[in-house]
Design a protein around this nucleic acid. Structure first.
Lengths: 213, 213
DNA sequence: ACCAGTCTATTCAATCTTGACTACTCTATG
DNA sequence: CATAGAGTAGTCAAGATTGAATAGACTGGT
């Protein structure tokens, strides 16, 4: 699973009704263009695709006063709402190494109830621990781990990384259980979106990118 | 950058000349189907694309004795060899969070000289540290980090993860400097490939997968 | 001898991703 | 007032990825 659908559904959901550019701006505001594949092309593609699949309802709207081509606004259908929650739960539980998916899940975690959030994160930790032992069992040759040579470093990387992920998740669980943040049903939510016309303080200045590409 | 080109170039290079199925089997042997997008479709696509771009030379070969369709064998061109080294160096230096790329880089690291490997890894650490401070500077609002609410957890995740990456890289550097493994120009290489007809001990049993999809 | 299953080897359509491009409006500046 | 630049909003073609499908040859059991 890529993070894009969850991000787009989440952004549209916050607004109730939003057009592509608004979604794009929100994702940028959240820093998602830094840690996910939330580029304009992907966002518009996801919107169209999900509209085709009945997760979003599309409304053609005249061009905005601010210039530019006519916009299409979207809102979640009931099916889209369910898919959003399904993706969110999956993002928090999946114990593989996709940081963008996890990040998106954390970004929307407060849309769940506190107890469910904790349960999902615990499940995540359980999965990681299990995966860890299955990997170490499976890839440790009879001839001892040294026989893997430098290839063993890859295993080491993945296992350490799973350990790191589990530790981090446990830390988050602790903070949540200690009462941090406001979850669903506990008062007004706090996922921020940009108000209509508001300036994005974290605009595409591209202040720090990866090394590659 | 995705890891697929590096993996495919590396696999072909090991053999001197290889067809798609051989590459696929090698990647599976290395466990790459577990930690990268090295699925058949991607492998064949990469081979064709790189042949089109002059990185690989293609040779049509009659169908093997073992049945199946006629195969195409590939070997690196000079340009392909350069591209391989470029991708390898980039994979080891890039300090973003793409574990598959790093894994592939580690898998082929012994194709470099020991001193260069260490230099690239040091550069990696340097980049990560710099990125870390630029992120913490940039995304820490005047109102204090608490004002970010649960969104701060995303930053925390990325920063911790960079710290983990840096620590792990330093560990690897240490082991390499202590004399571990056999690097280019130090005797016979040790990246394993499957010999023609050899059985893959880590065949597609798919013993442990991620949670999602 | 037959059939199911597995191995060899690759192709394909559908979908997703990327980076560049379009086109229009508003604003500041000399 | 011309015009460069930035902001608004979205499209497009090329490339990458995925999952399933194809098809012949061998293998083991009944």
């Amino acid at each position: 699973m890529s993070a894009i659908r969850l991000l787009v559904l989440g952004a549209v959901r916050q607004h109730g009704r939003a057009h592509g550019y608004q979604v794009r701006n929100d994702l940028e505001f959240w820093g998602a263009h830094e840690w996910s594949n939330a580029k304009p092309g992907s966002i518009y593609h996801a919107l169209k695709q999900m509209a085709k699949q009945g997760l979003l309802r599309a409304h053609e709207v005249g061009p905005s006063t601010a210039g530019g081509p006519p916009r299409t606004e979207y809102e979640l259908t009931e099916q889209g709402g369910e898919e959003y929650l399904r993706l969110l739960r999956e993002a928090l539980t999946a114990y593989d190494q996709k940081m963008d998916v996890l990040s998106a899940g954390v970004g929307f975690i407060v849309d769940l109830e506190r107890s469910e959030a904790v349960a999902l994160l615990r499940e995540r930790v359980r999965g990681m621990t299990e995966w860890r032992s299955s990997v170490t069992d499976y890839y440790t040759p009879e001839s001892g781990p040294e026989s893997l040579g430098h290839i063993g470093e890859i295993m080491n990387l993945w296992v350490s990384s799973a350990d790191f992920g589990a530790r981090w998740t446990l830390g988050l669980i602790e903070r949540i259980e200690a009462g941090a943040y406001v979850f669903a049903g506990e008062g007004e939510r706090s996922v921020q979106v940009l108000a209509e016309g508001e300036r994005n303080p974290y605009a595409t200045g591209v202040p720090h990118t990866g090394d590659e590409e």
